[in-house]
Structures are given as C-alpha cells and as structure tokens.
Nucleic acid binder design. Structure first.
Length: 277
DNA sequence: AAGCCTACCTGTTGGC
DNA sequence: TGCCAACAGGTAGGCT
C-alpha cells in the first residue's frame, strides 16, 4: 500500500486529531505483525498524551513523553477511525481509544498481509534515530541535501539497474514501486539503465522528478490502487495521474506508443520504450 | 560489499 | 461455476 506520499497524507490527517489528545485505552488484538507487538504496549500508552506525529521514510512516528510508537504499514496496512464500541474487522491487530472534543474514537491498525509493524521505542533507549529500524535509513527526498549530485555520488560503481537502485532505498528513502516508475518516466530514463553509468545531468532531472512526483501525490491524497485509504476513509487520486504505472499497453502520454511492463527484481516496472532511454 | 534471492502473509483477479 | 497461478503499495536476512 503505502509509499512515502501515502504515509505523509496519513500523518497530515492524523496530526491534528492526535496531538495533545490522550490514549484512553489500547488493545493488542493480535500481536502477529512482521515483528510481534509488545504485549505491554497498552501499559506504556494508556493515559499518555500524544506530543507529536511525524514521519521518517515510510514510518509514522507517534511521540509521547515516555517514548515513540513506530508504525509501518507494509504493503496493505491501514489506519481506520471507528466508534469506540464498533465491531472489530478481520485483520484489525491493534487499536487505541483517543479522547476527542466530541467524545472518544477508536483508531484501528488493520493489516491483512501482516507485513507492517508497530514498535515501541522507550525514551530510556536513547535518541529515536538510533532505533535499529531507523538508524540505517538513507536521506529523505525532501531533505535539502537530496539532489542529483547526491544520487550521482551514491550510484558510482553500482551495477544494478537504476530502478532497482531507487527501490533499494540506499540513496534516498520513500520511493516505492509506483513512484519509481513514474519518476523515471518523467526524467526520461530507461529503468534498465545501470545506475553507475548515468550522467550527473540525468540524475539532476531524476532528483527533480522524484520531488515533483512525490509532492504531487501528497497534494492529491496519495494513490488508491486497491485498498489504500486515509484513516477517515478518504481515497487518494494520484492513480488517475500516473503516466506509466499500471498502464501496460495504453498509449504513452507523450508519444502514444504502448507502455511496456517488465519485471525487475520480482517487481513490475512500467515505462515508455521511446521516451525513456 | 554488492547483488541476488527468498521469505514473510492474505486477498483479488484473470485465464482456462 | 470452480480451480489455480499470478500478482499486489515493503523490506529484512541469508547466501554467493
């Protein structure tokens, strides 16, 4: 489900609904996610006030005075607001009751494929950036240090394709399968080009394309291809603006030739064979 | 070290 | 209609 834009859209929606609110109740319905949910999570959170709702890469970070909750949504994870007494749905693994001005609401974490995570980082364990899941992450695409020079430098002597290089998140985080194809299209770069043999000028275009595509996706609420929705059920609209992703056989937005699908590293890539070289 | 591959899960879709 | 393979927004970890 979520790449960086979807997580950012969720963060922006959630921040005003969570910040300065208290966790009235917390239940672990099923601890089985990518890593087991700490069964003591409710004892850490109940009665605490949310101080911050931030994002690092595809992690949503909910800050309290005693630690931070890291949420990751894997491929299919979602948050959903419901009445506190509403019936649980299949694959609801975790929930929080949050006090709101007009009575409390329950926030469910639902993740059918269980590739997501809910991890507690106690304040006593030191700075959040040292959490094992965060400490090795590359820079954010909206970091001032992210540009073509950065991609160029990190890609020297790399023999993987540029698509795999982007997806590996070793140089920049947050660009998943949809936005990698979209960014390469907008930069006019063939996805099978080797990362290490692309010029500085082309990486300048790619860095710009990544920022443009991600910004636009955030603006329109992300991509709702199958099941992504923000916590209030709002769907994204970016899937209507993709120029190549999911468009195999359809005419290229620029030249009209059919968009091609290929598989790289077991993931689908979409591109235009004429406009991308 | 880099790159390749598998594994983790469930649900949906399309072809026969 | 039913069955089955292919595929889906991510990423850690193990093996060259």
């Amino acid at each position: 489900m979520p790449e960086l834009p979807e997580v950012e859209v969720v963060r922006r929606a959630l921040a005003p609904q969570l910040i300065r609110r208290h966790v009235i109740d917390c239940e672990v319905h099923s601890p089985r996610l990518r890593w087991p949910i700490d069964p003591l999570l409710p004892t850490y959170l109940v009665g605490r006030q949310v101080l911050a709702v931030e994002r690092r890469s595809k992690y949503l970070l909910v800050g309290f005075d005693n630690g931070t909750l890291l949420l990751h949504f894997g491929m299919a994870g979602k948050l959903r607001w419901a009445a506190p007494c509403a019936a649980r749905e299949p694959h609801d693994h975790l929930s929080f009751v949050i006090d709101q001005p007009e009575g409390s609401l329950r926030l469910y974490l639902n993740d059918p494929r269980r590739f997501g995570a809910a991890l507690w980082h106690p304040l006593a364990h030191g700075p959040l950036e040292q959490h094992p899941r965060l400490s090795g992450l590359a820079i954010e695409p909206f970091d001032a240090r992210f540009d073509g020079a950065h991609l160029f430098r990190d890609s020297r002597r790399r023999s993987v394709s540029v698509k795999s290089f982007l997806l590996s998140a070793q140089s920049v985080v947050g660009v998943g399968n949809i936005y990698a194809s979209e960014s390469l299209f907008r930069a006019g770069i063939h996805p099978e080009r080797l990362a290490g043999s692309i010029s500085r000028a082309r990486y300048d275009r790619l860095a710009l394309a990544i920022r443009t595509v991600l910004s636009r996706a955030i603006e329109v609420g992300g991509s709702s291809l199958r099941d992504y929705a923000a916590p209030g059920g709002e769907l994204g609209a970016f899937q209507a603006e993709t120029r190549v992703y999911g468009r195999e056989g359809q005419p290229c937005w620029i030249c009209g030739r059919p968009i091609v699908r290929l598989v790289q590293g077991q993931r689908s890539t979409f591109y235009c064979p004429k406009c991308q070289s």
